[in-house]
Amino acid sequence: MKLDRKEYLALSQKASPPSPSLKNVPAAFFTGGAICALGQFFKGIFLGWGMEDKAAGTAVSVTLIFLGVLLTGLRLFERAAKWAGAGTLVPITGFANSVAAPALEFKTEGFVLGVCVKMFSIAGPVLTFGISASVLYGLLLYLFGGAA
């Protein structure tokens, strides 16, 4: 029988199981929440050391990034992320993993062309968009004045 694309797509959608959101969403909720609470815990410690609020915030990011990179190196991050999904991806740990994973993976192609070039293959767009958005926002502030 002749096949048209619409019919075929419908057939394919019928055969494809949906993502198991009933399992994924609670997993992401708990892991993501736990990582944020852990960050808050670190922040409490840093504030207790007499750091000012902004510096403590940066220190929290650095600590979580360190943990993300370490777990990536120990091959534990991927295992956790398979279960946690967005729970490990969306916190800053996901950013750390997206830099560390290609750095580690492309070691076999050398340090310059492997590690250093590929390091930004996933995180590159995040940095580019983030920096560009902040520059645009800065320009708007400069042109239209003191909104914040």
Binding site: F29, A86, G94, T128
Partner: peptide, 26 residues
């Protein structure tokens, strides 16, 4: 709670739309 809700909503976005992680993070 707030961190969890953000991650939970992101998971729905990933499951429903197949947006790649790099796009979501950006």
């Amino acid at each position: 709670l707030v961190g969890g809700v953000i991650c939970g909503l992101s998971q729905i976005l990933i499951d429903r739309t197949r947006l790649t992680p790099a796009r979501i993070l950006s």
